[in-house]
């Protein structure tokens, strides 16, 4: 009966324009529509599938501003049992290292965790590193970029899929798993699920509640600092021609002129 923690994150919608705040070069979260990252829904789905087959409990964990409650509600309405939300203004501008430490501390608040499931890569930061970093901090094996997960007793096996191909992995629980695009098709929350979600427990913590000094997180104490951020001048349109039978030839001429062919 695995005890599962799923990480979810609210991200700016990739179809809307994203900006950096002028004051401190952090993501301007107000300027873009926020959605539950698609890949997180797959992570929630995989946790629910494991629970349905083997029992256990699914806890949703999110670190982020107040708005993250929307992502948490979505996960609960899909069927997760409870949620932990770490929300603290001190976290603003935290780097990957600080975020990982906070996640690890919050996971420590959940009793007897067997499995941590996350999406393989968020669409905003695209670090693709948090699940591996979390495994490093927790001292758990990492089974990342999964397209298939199977658990038998305390043994977990995963088919990992990356650009280089498939890799078959095996490790002993507790472990950290990250899921890829092909893992499953996430369910839609049912009306019953949406209603039930309203009654599910959401624990909210500050960083101090997690035993972390607020001065150790956030922009001022981050392990990386942005020196300058310059919006790229927009690309301007170049030549444009109507095809009147020789469009292909015109492209060829252009490419020859540019020494590209």
């Amino acid at each position: 009966m695995p005890n599962i923690v799923v990480l979810v994150k609210q991200v700016p919608d990739t179809y809307s324009e994203r900006r950096l705040a002028e004051a401190d070069h952090t993501l301007d979260r107000e300027s873009a529509d926020a959605v539950l990252d698609e890949i997180n829904e797959r992570a929630v789905e995989e946790a629910l599938l494991i629970k349905e087959a083997q029992g256990g409990e699914v806890t949703v964990l999110s670190v982020g501003p107040e708005r993250a409650t929307e992502a948490i509600r979505k996960a609960l309405s899909m069927g997760a049992d409870r949620a932990v939300h770490v929300s603290d203004p001190a976290l603003h501008g935290s780097c990957l290292l600080q975020t990982t430490r906070v996640l690890a501390a919050a996971i420590g608040k959940v009793d007897g965790v067997d499995l941590v499931i996350a999406g393989n890569e968020a669409t905003d930061g695209r670090g693709g590193a948090i699940p591996a970093m979390l495994a490093e901090v927790l001292g758990f094996p990492q089974l990342t970029h999964a397209r298939k997960v199977a658990i038998d007793g305390t043994t977990i096996t995963v088919t990992r899929e990356t650009d280089t191909g498939l890799t078959h992995l095996s490790a002993t629980l507790p472990a950290v798993v990250s899921v890829g695009e092909k893992i499953n098709e996430p369910r839609y929350p049912s009306f019953k699920g949406i209603m039930a979600a309203k009654k599910k427990p959401v624990e909210t913590y500050t960083v101090a509640d997690l035993g972390i000094d607020a001065a150790e997180v956030g922009l001022a104490a981050a392990s990386t600092t942005v020196l300058e951020a310059t919006p790229k001048p927009p690309r301007s349109a170049g030549q444009r021609v109507e095809d009147s039978g020789d469009g292909g030839g015109k492209i060829a001429e252009y490419l020859i002129g540019q020494k590209l062919i």
């Binding site: 780097c95 990982t100 590193a129 948090i130 970093m133 990386t224």
Partner: peptide, 22 residues
């Protein structure tokens, strides 16, 4: 790469270093 990002992330944690990505 997928693997490189994971190696870098863990190395940054282990050595207490800043991680600059992509």
């Amino acid at each position: 790469t997928a693997e490189g990002k994971e190696i870098a992330g863990r190395l940054a944690v282990r050595t207490g270093s800043g991680l600059l990505i992509e």
